[in-house]
């Protein structure tokens, strides 16, 4: 497999609902949501998460710890200079992620509760 991501066909974008897709394509990667985000696991930060989606890497985005670490404070939405609904994109991805058997509720977060 090529080391290059093929950006000719971004069909994974179709997994997203309209509002989430709009956020993804409209984002200009200023980095503000990433800097205000207070999630404990900013892996990746919201800005980089959006970038993954923009490049059609939704499957990779679904593995992100950020999805389960987001506390829903919506600081990202407040900060966004384009008034995009970043939090909604994160929630949508989490919903999609929950449908994937091997990703659903990652063990590292489960462990946090056990301790």
């Amino acid at each position: 497999m090529s080391r290059y991501i093929d950006i000719t066909d971004l069909k994974e974008m179709f997994f997203l609902d309209t509002a989430a897709a709009k956020t993804a394509v409209s984002c200009e990667q200023c980095g503000k949501c990433g800097s205000v985000c207070i999630a404990p696991f900013k892996k990746p930060n919201p800005t980089s998460l959006i970038r993954l989606v923009q490049l059609g890497q939704v499957a990779e985005a679904l593995q992100s710890p950020l999805l389960w670490s987001c506390i829903g404070c919506e600081q990202c939405n407040m900060a966004c200079p384009n008034r995009l609904n970043v939090a909604h994109l994160v929630r949508s991805l989490r919903r999609l992620s929950a449908r994937e058997r091997d990703v659903c509720f990652p063990k590292y977060i489960f462990d946090l509760f056990v301790e």
């Binding site: 080391r3 290059y4 991501i5 093929d6 950006i7 990667q29 980089s48 970038r51 490049l55 890497q57």
Partner: peptide, 16 residues
């Protein structure tokens, strides 16, 4: 066309 996407640090390519 191949390029390094400096925003994601990933290599990308496309056919146009």
């Amino acid at each position: 066309v191949r390029a390094d996407d400096t925003l994601s640090g990933k290599k990308v390519e496309g056919n146009f």
